[in-house]
Design a binder for these strands. Structure first.
Lengths: 343, 343
DNA sequence: TTGAAAGCGCTAACAG
DNA sequence: CTGTTAGCGCTTTCAA
């Protein structure tokens, strides 16, 4: 690591920031009048307004949002507690876009899938008096939010519902997604289909596994050795793969319950990935560049993010509106891996 | 999209949030004393402190960070203006982690590679009085930040330097990275190596293209038709690929200047990707799952993010310290595509 | 050790 | 149309 050091900092002499009062003095008017101009209040004489605007430019004045918002009681900030900031996070991106369309900015904090972190993040957002919170719940119990919600903090859960308190939520249609994948595989000749996915104490893991069981039963298949749920780790995936692909009647097709599972499965299958049909839940970048291309059940992140903001703003506008859960459709994208015939 | 609506919102009756004064009254003490307890000031009698803490719990009081920070003059927030929030953004993740280690939170805004958006984002962060700003510059001129920097706002540029104002910066060693890739390909027998990358008005595009030219020259090769820089779009990539891989003496190896270029190149090459050796600048998720695995020059995002925060905090602590540019080493990761022999 | 009072920078009643 | 006067919820001199 190389460090190149310049002669000196530009702003050695730290200039004091001008306040609204400075502008008022500069323009020879009262504080209130400056405030009016800053807020585009039309009830200011045109020449006075011009003089004030000139003073603003001369002093290079910019209003202090923190102070303004303390006074007005709104922050213009929406908090987003998401699982992580590093992986592709299309929902966060959509939230950000929609927030900006509504002249709000997003304060994102990552929970790293830890309950404690979720709690810290969300409560710190509350203390910062954000105008609302969008969260991907990690905990299953959100009692700690009860008093905040009661105080009028809009909270919208995304991907999973909250537990213990009523809050608006935006969820993907997990059951339909599994159904899509399952039927797709059956249509391509598969009868022995297995499922590998997240632990069932996680909401999505539970919903998807249940849907898979229902599909299998409806299709007249056996469930024995076909459903593997657990913490996504190499060892678990290895065991699940051995169990499903080994034996007398190995599965000819696999449904993987989320992106993390899919990726680990592909990694472990290596060049054998072409031997078994795969439909993955969740789309991800580069899934189309794999060979075979990965067939996925894709969530509609854009709609999810937009809907979350809409629910949040609706609740902020009307605190007594009924709590709502919106289910967003998913879509199957065929790219090759899900169309492989049984072998 | 299905909407399920519950009977009624929990918090129909919006409860007023308790203030510090409420706590003081509840505990029968002065406001100041509550403040002391909240800030862990040891000069409070133990039993009084206990009584106050009890009142805090009873009222479920949480201090208003916005007010506290207005008064103290710090916000506890670091602004991060990054190119986007959706793609994997390892630097943002590292910034977030390091910020939290320093008890600060990150306000991330995306610039979407637009100069106007960068300006809006950064100036809005300034108005919010964040404690410092980390930015991936899009513009080449940052005069608009001069007065803010002069007022003491710490600004750290990441990936590219600022223009027109002196600010700390953290950059990857672009020249070394290109050198690593180039030598790696030469070592594997390549003499006709081409470069496809970002337009040269972008700092990194310029640095990497220049380094590639220097390497080629030092290696005694021709530059004719070997360097293609432009806005990364399918048409540009198609033209570049046609030019480098067609003709009498087609290139046998490719260096791609950034992740976006690499991905588009791979997409267009399709199954022909195994015919030409490729070293990509920038690592990305799943690069190891491609076949052949993608050989990359990887930036050290963790170090970049951590260093950015460190520079920011150092400047916040000492506004007259010299401006510094830190160059972070890169690393070549061989996965197959860069080890293909010429053909 | 505790308390009263004065602001941080701004907006919002209410007069003139 | 403009100015005066109170605060938003908190920290911080400065006395007691």
């Amino acid at each position: 690591m190389t460090e190149r050091t310049a002669a000196h900092a530009g702003g050695n002499q730290r200039r004091k920031r001008p306040t609204m009062l400075d502008v008022a003095r500069e323009a020879g008017v009262a504080l209130r009048t400056v405030s009016r101009v800053v807020n585009n209040d039309p009830t200011v004489g045109p020449e006075l307004a011009a003089r004030i605007r000139q003073a603003i430019l001369a002093l290079d004045y910019a209003p202090d949002e923190q102070a303004r918002q303390l006074r007005r009681g709104v922050s213009g900030i929406i908090g987003a507690a998401v699982r992580n900031l590093s992986d592709a996070h299309p929902v966060l991106s959509s939230v950000d876009r929609t927030a900006r369309e509504n002249r709000m900015t997003v304060l994102a904090m990552s929970t790293e899938d830890e309950e404690q972190r979720e709690r810290d993040a969300v409560l710190s957002m509350c203390r910062r008096r954000v105008d609302g919170i969008i969260m991907e719940p990690i905990s299953t119990n959100h009692q700690y939010l009860a008093s905040e919600i009661e105080s009028g903090m809009p909270v919208v859960a995304v991907d999973r519902p909250t537990g213990g308190v009523a809050a608006d939520a935006v969820l993907s249609d997990n059951a339909a997604g599994i159904g899509l994948g399952f039927r797709h595989l059956v249509l391509h000749g598969h009868q022995r289909i297995a499922y590998i996915g997240d632990q069932e104490r996680v909401f999505t893991g539970r919903e998807r596994a249940a849907a898979f069981r229902a599909c299998t039963a409806a299709n007249g298949g056996t469930l024995e050795g076909r459903v593997h749920t657990g913490v996504i780790e190499p060892a678990f995936i290895a065991a699940a793969l051995a169990a499903t692909l080994g034996g007398d009647l190995p599965a000819t097709a696999l449904i993987t319950g989320n992106a993390q599972t899919t990726i680990e499965v592909l990694r472990q299958l290596g060049s054998a990935a072409g031997d078994v049909a795969i439909v993955g839940f969740d789309d991800f970048l580069l899934a189309d560049l794999l060979r075979p291309g990965l067939t996925v059940v894709a969530q509609d992140s854009a709609t999810i993010g937009r809907t979350a903001i809409e629910l949040l703003l609706a609740r902020a506008a009307d605190h007594s509106r009924p709590v709502q859960t919106v289910t967003v459709p998913v879509e199957l994208i065929a790219r090759g891996s899900g169309e492989l015939p049984p072998r």
